[in-house]
Computed example of a mutant assay.
Amino acid sequence: MTPAPELLPEVKDLIDADLRTRLIEEVRAEWPGLGEDLGERGIGQMVAFLATSARTAEPLTPSLRVDAFWHRFLLHTVPYVRFCAALGVKFIHHVPEPAAKAGPAAGRAAMERTKAAIRAAGYAVDPEFWPGEGVADCTQCHAGCTDSPVNT
């Protein structure tokens, strides 16, 4: 089992324990084998992705597994908006693009840029959640799903 990467103290507790539990339960509905440890790691990777997204104007691409947590978090609008504000942005938008607009090569390149940006921001990239790191399933990145390039 891969140890859970540590989050930087500045973002470690931006999602309270009750909401973390709810997010894991909600993602588990789509991912039945998701245990508590892996769920906590998924939230950590989502937080690392969003915290990195808040610090760049370059669009970043979540992995399929990270995106599952982000989709659930977006449904909890009040804590999501508070989370974004704690990162210093008004809102981190989820911007899906039509599949025809992005091909697999562009998606793979976007995923590599995203992982590099997360590492450059000081976060660990958990291989269980990112394709090309040895463990994670394939991603939907060919569909062009990104954060907003300008966090308003």
Rank of each mutant, 00 (worst) to 15 (best):
T2C: 01
A4Q: 09
E6R: 11
L8T: 03
V11S: 01
K12T: 06
L14Y: 07
D16Q: 04
D18R: 13
R22A: 08
R22D: 04
I24V: 04
E25Q: 15
R28K: 12
A29H: 13
A29Y: 06
E30R: 14
P32D: 05
E36C: 04
E36H: 12
D37Y: 14
D37G: 07
L38A: 13
G39E: 11
G44R: 12
M46P: 03
V47L: 14
A48C: 08
A48S: 13
L50S: 02
T52G: 07
S53G: 10
A54K: 09
R55T: 03
T56C: 05
E58Q: 06
E58V: 01
L64K: 13
R65C: 03
R65S: 14
V66H: 12
D67Q: 10
A68M: 15
F69Y: 13
F69H: 03
F69N: 04
H71K: 06
H71L: 04
F73N: 01
L75E: 02
H76G: 01
V78G: 07
P79Y: 10
Y80W: 07
Y80F: 14
V81T: 06
V81E: 09
C84D: 01
A86W: 11
G88R: 07
V89N: 00
K90T: 04
F91I: 01
H94N: 01
A99N: 09
K101A: 11
K101L: 12
P104H: 10
A106V: 12
A106F: 12
R108D: 12
A109I: 07
A109E: 14
M111C: 09
M111F: 11
R113F: 07
T114Q: 05
T114G: 03
K115V: 09
I118R: 08
R119I: 09
Y123V: 01
A124Y: 06
E133I: 10
E133W: 15
G134H: 01
T146P: 01
D147I: 00
P149C: 02
V150E: 04
N151C: 07
